[in-house]
């Protein structure tokens, strides 16, 4: 059975061609365990009896709504994303572990992110072991999993046209307040350019859940996102 599946998978991958090797098998669980101890265990516990510490318990993480562990005090940003419908899947966890701020701008998780794709795959494989039904993850064919949401360095390097950004920003300030007030709708001023860019691309790629933001981001080109970032970076 598994042999057949493996063969089919190979065929599918050969047909698609461009998928990274990491999609085929998630990663190495034992290397993931070592990584967990090194990178995560200062704040997080995992396992049947794990409790919340500085961070929430990570048992049963897959399929869980963001910000949903009872008794844990989440950041406003994390709670908002959970309400908007962010659920932890391979795709969203990978984006979050790679760069937490790409997914949750105001997360309290003080972690720089795990940039190495193979290491992320190992860590996710370990986290998956502690989920309710590890064998069901991913639920769809591996080909359904998006490729790494990594942004090309060239996209991050675009120098934004600030004047164009100012014009485009008028679309943002219909809802987001210019003075940075955070009332029902988050503040978007004084935002480091790179964080802004990755956040907007996370909406554009529909990793972040909010429908209005997904719609607004979907028609912004790379240059336009850079232009907005250049404008908002110096707004206070």
């Amino acid at each position: 059975m598994s042999g057949w599946r493996g063969l089919l998978l190979t065929l599918v991958l050969a047909a698609v061609g461009s998928l990274p090797a990491a999609a085929e098998s998630l990663g190495d669980e034992s290397r993931g365990a070592v990584l967990f101890n090194r990178e995560c265990s200062v704040c997080h516990r995992i396992g049947p009896d794990a409790e919340n510490r500085i961070g929430p318990r990570l048992t049963g993480l897959f399929g869980r709504r963001a910000g949903a562990v009872p008794g844990f005090e989440y950041s406003k940003s994390m709670a908002r994303m959970g309400n908007d419908g962010l659920t932890w899947t391979l795709e969203t966890l990978e984006a979050y572990v790679e760069n937490p701020k790409a997914l949750i701008s105001g997360t309290r998780m003080n972690y720089r992110g795990l940039k190495d794709a193979a290491a992320r795959a190992d860590l996710l494989a370990f986290l998956r072991l502690h989920s309710d039904r590890p064998q069901n993850i991913p639920e769809a064919e591996p080909t359904a999993r998006k490729t790494d949401p990594d942004l090309d360095a060239a996209v991050l390097a675009i120098k934004g046209d600030r004047d164009y950004g100012e014009y485009l920003s008028a679309e943002c300030t219909t809802c987001h307040q210019r003075d940075g007030t955070d009332q029902g709708i988050p503040s978007i001023t004084r935002w480091p350019e790179e964080d802004f860019v990755v956040a907007m691309h996370a909406y554009k790629q529909r990793l972040r859940p909010h429908p209005v933001m997904q719609m607004m981001a979907s028609r912004l080109s790379n240059d336009e996102i850079a232009a907005l970032a250049a404008f908002f970076a110096d707004q206070d």
Binding site: T174, Q177, D182
Partner: peptide, 21 residues
């Protein structure tokens, strides 16, 4: 209910934002 509440709170933020605009 949490999403509906968040949507309502968002509308309050929008009112403040658009009237300032």
């Amino acid at each position: 209910a949490a999403l509906r509440k968040a949507t309502y709170e968002e509308s309050l933020g929008w009112y403040a934002g658009i009237t300032a605009d």
